[in-house]
Every structure is written in C-alpha cells, then in structure tokens.
Simulated scan of single mutants.
Amino acid sequence: MTIDWAHERVLIFAPHPDDETLGCGGLMSKAKAAGAEVYVQFITVGDTADLSPKGQSTVQERYGEIKEVADFFRWNDWQIAFPGDEFHLKLDRLARFELSNMIERHSPLSIAELEPTVVIAPHRTSYNQDHQATAEAVHTALRPSDNRLRHHPRLVLAYEEAADQWRYEAAASPNFLVELDEGHVDDKISAMRLYGTQIHEHPHTRSELTLRSLAALRGMQGGVAFAEGYHALRWLA
C-alpha cells in the first residue's frame, strides 16, 4: 500500500529538538516534496550538558538550530510547549493529565486544532524519560472514542531512534516502512548537520554513518535501497 503524501497533514511530536529529524527526517523530506503539510510540536528544550569542549549547549543555540531546520524542511509551523530547564529532561515529573491535554487540545498545534491525518510520536521503549512521557501522553490523547466527537487521525506511528535499540526490552522490528530515495536520506543528514550541538562523529547514535546505515538496514528489510522504520499504532484504511 502506498500513501499519497500530497493529501496528508502530518503532526510530529518531538520531546526535544532533533528527535523529529532522527526519527522522521526522511519521511518529512518525502512528504514535503509531495506537497504535504508538516507540523512539529516540540515538548521541551533547555540548556543541555554535552561532551563538547564547553560542556553544554544553551537554549539560545537550540532555538537557532530549530529555525534553521524548520526553514530547511519548510515546516508549516512548529512550537515548543514547555520550554526551559524546569521541564527539560524532567517531563516524567509533569502530570500526564497536563501533558496529554496540551497534546489533545491546549496548543496551537494540538490534535483538536490541526486535525492531522497522520500523527507520529516517539516509541515508549526509549531509555529517555522525556521520550517515554511524550509517548505515553500521545497514547492517552489518541485514546479510542466516537470520531464524530473527537478527531481521530487515520494513521498513528511511533518512530525509532538508533539510541533506543540497545535496551533488553526494546520493541520488535518496525512493522511499517516508509521507502526513501538517496535524496531523502541526504536531506535527513543535512538537517542533522544543522543541529550542530547534537550531531556527533562516529561511533555515536547521532552520527551520519549511523543514520545512513539504519536507513539502509530498514530499506533492505523492505526490499528497497533505503527506508525509515515505524511502529503502526493505528491505521484506518
């Protein structure tokens, strides 16, 4: 089955800036080229300790990177729901009620406001507490109900990141593959380069070689050159 991305409105939930590119960079490139609308709801961002010579990236640097990546992918809009060190890497302390309500209706990029046809979120088996909290909150916000009263996107996916693969209870291989061409993979890597505070030299889960290798592996599993892997949580055909 193929998807005509030209008619899709895609809403991606990213716990932090770069998660959307790591998980969905190829899909965003492919969908935008076809004419889709793409929106990114970031959950939080703050000063981030890292292994760079200065030891951290600032929130101002992270905002600058987001703007460059947004222009590169030509997102229709993006927003950060809970900015600042009070929330960054602490989403597990935020009540799921508050986080789910933001996702469902209390944001300019909420499901109720946008009525997306496709929703994509992180997978709940991530080792990162912010990813887990986001995944569970999206799951709650998209709970089954009467679709005459609440919007139900036709396709709900969970994206993968290479960093998630080492957990002993990690999810099974993706059951939904999006075929990519080499240009889509190149766009994904180019966007990660714009996240200069986050990309790393190999060996690292956010290196260029890791991203290209994972795309080649998922492509092989689908009998094509490159692909991105997702877990389909709901698919209404």
Rank of each mutant, 00 (worst) to 15 (best):
I3C: 06
I3T: 11
D4C: 03
E8S: 08
E8Q: 02
R9A: 01
L11W: 00
L11E: 01
I12S: 01
A14P: 02
H16C: 03
H16I: 11
P17F: 06
T21D: 03
G23S: 08
C24G: 01
G25C: 05
G26D: 00
L27W: 02
S29E: 10
K30P: 04
A31Y: 02
K32W: 14
V40N: 02
Q41G: 04
I43L: 12
T48D: 14
A49D: 15
D50T: 01
K54E: 13
K54L: 11
K54T: 08
G55Y: 03
G55V: 02
Q60F: 08
E61D: 04
R62K: 05
R62F: 00
Y63C: 05
E68D: 15
E68Q: 10
D71R: 02
F72R: 08
R74N: 12
W75F: 03
W75A: 01
D77K: 15
D77V: 06
W78A: 07
Q79D: 13
Q79G: 09
P83H: 04
G84C: 11
F87A: 06
H88T: 07
L89D: 05
L89M: 05
R93Y: 06
R93P: 11
A95D: 12
R96S: 07
R96H: 15
F97E: 14
E98Y: 15
E98C: 11
L99K: 11
I103Q: 01
E104L: 01
P108K: 07
E113L: 02
E113N: 07
T117H: 00
Y127T: 06
Y127V: 03
Q132W: 12
Q132V: 11
A133P: 07
A137Y: 08
A137C: 00
V138Q: 00
A141G: 01
L142A: 04
P144K: 10
R148G: 14
R148Q: 09
R148H: 13
L149D: 12
R150A: 08
H151I: 00
P153M: 00
E161M: 15
A162R: 09
A163Y: 03
Q165W: 12
Q165S: 10
Y168N: 15
A171P: 10
A172L: 05
P174G: 13
P174S: 10
V178I: 13
E179I: 09
E182I: 08
G183S: 05
D186N: 07
D187N: 12
S190V: 13
G196H: 15
T197N: 04
Q198A: 08
E201R: 10
H202V: 14
P203N: 15
R206S: 13
E208D: 04
T210Q: 04
S213P: 12
S213G: 12
L217Y: 14
Q221M: 14
G222I: 09
G223Y: 06
A225V: 13
G229R: 15
Y230V: 07
Y230F: 12
A232H: 04
L233F: 07
L233D: 06
L233W: 07
W235T: 05
